[in-house]
Computed example of a mutant assay.
Amino acid sequence: MAFDPYDLDRDYGAPSGVITEAQYTTRTFLWMMLGLMVTFGVALVGWMTNATLYLFSAFPAIHLVILVVTMILSFSLTARIEKMSVASAQMMFLVFSALMGVTASTWLYLYQLTSIVFIFLATALYFGALAAYGHFTNRSLAGYKSILLSGLIFLILFGVLSLFIPGMTAFDSMISLFGIAIFLGYTAYDTQRIREFYYYYSGYPDMMEKASIFSALQLYMDFINLFLYLLRFLGKQRN
């Protein structure tokens, strides 16, 4: 049974009885929240101790190293999740969250702390509302997959081009609003897919554990990206 996170169209089996859908959903969100706690905990410690400044001063290319490593971890969790153990999947998720915390620590030097706290709370509110919609709606959101993916590709391409064409920063507010819309959509979409993973892996306790980590990673990335685009749009930078 090959793991394909983008194709869950099959006849669902009966739940195994080992864990209920509510318990599975709760576990997924708890993992997501743990990842966020690790990320912002590392960010706060790095900022308060100035360890982040030292790290980036001593190793100027560290941000590229972190980017590459986090991408490898993310792809590994997707491509090899069936082959790795539950403990390995959990450890990779926590390492991923910690490395993201090093990057997140730089945001505390760029934006006012009160602004970051306010936007974090706003992100939690918007994320919670769309996650609730994705969980409780009876309407299938699968039809929005191609739209969301196209939007994500556009955001990535725009981000790459803006590195080489400074004038594109004039569209920053518009792009931020577009990014907010895309990741609000992904929040509802990925939340609905939690149920699909639950029924898809019914009867396979280990795979349910690992699929829960995979879903937590998707929701974690939705939250972080939503937070970043809100921060770009509403955040107050330090003088």
Rank of each mutant, 00 (worst) to 15 (best):
V45C: 00
L99T: 02
L130G: 01
T25H: 14
Y199M: 13
I153D: 10
A51P: 03
Y126W: 12
D206R: 13
Y186G: 10
L231C: 06
K210R: 11
A98M: 00
W107I: 10
D9Q: 13
T123E: 01
F223N: 08
R193N: 10
T39G: 04
L234M: 14
Q192H: 07
L67E: 08
S97F: 13
L219W: 05
L157T: 08
H135V: 00
V42G: 09
A188N: 01
Y199V: 11
N239D: 14
T78V: 12
S74M: 11
I72L: 13
A122G: 05
T187L: 06
G13S: 05
S76L: 11
I175D: 00
T26F: 15
R27V: 02
N50P: 00
Y144R: 02
D7M: 01
Q218F: 14
T169F: 11
L230S: 14
G185H: 09
G17C: 03
D9G: 05
L94K: 08
M208K: 11
M174I: 08
V117A: 13
L108G: 04
R193H: 14
S212F: 02
S115R: 11
L73D: 06
T169C: 05
Y6Q: 10
M168G: 03
T187E: 08
R238D: 10
L110R: 14
I66S: 06
S146A: 12
G203D: 11
I165P: 04
M48R: 14
V65F: 12
L219C: 10
H63T: 15
L152K: 02
G185E: 11
T78C: 07
T25G: 06
L36G: 07
M37E: 08
L149M: 15
F227R: 09
A188G: 01
V86G: 04
Y12C: 01
Y54C: 02
R193I: 07
L152T: 15
V65H: 07
Y186Q: 04
S215R: 04
A2F: 13
R232Y: 12
Y201F: 13
G134T: 03
L149S: 15
I224M: 14
T187M: 02
Y198E: 03
Q218A: 14
F29P: 01
I182Y: 00
A22G: 03
S140H: 13
A2M: 08
E21Y: 06
P166A: 09
L226Y: 09
T103N: 12
Y199P: 05
P15F: 00
V95E: 00
F154A: 04
A170F: 07
G159L: 10
R27W: 04
K236E: 14
V117L: 13
A79V: 10
L231T: 15
S215G: 01
M33C: 06
V42L: 08
M221H: 11
F29Q: 00
T106N: 06
Q90I: 08
L155C: 03
A181P: 03
Y54H: 11
S176W: 10
G128Q: 03
A129N: 07
L36V: 06
M174W: 13
A124W: 08
T70S: 00
M71H: 06
L53P: 00
P205G: 10
S202G: 15
Y220E: 08
S85M: 13
T191L: 00
A22Y: 13
L141S: 01
M168Q: 09
D172V: 09
V45A: 14
T70A: 01
A129K: 03
T28A: 05
F171I: 07
L44N: 05
A98N: 00
M221L: 15
G101M: 01
S85P: 02
V18N: 07
A129W: 05
D190Y: 11
L161D: 09
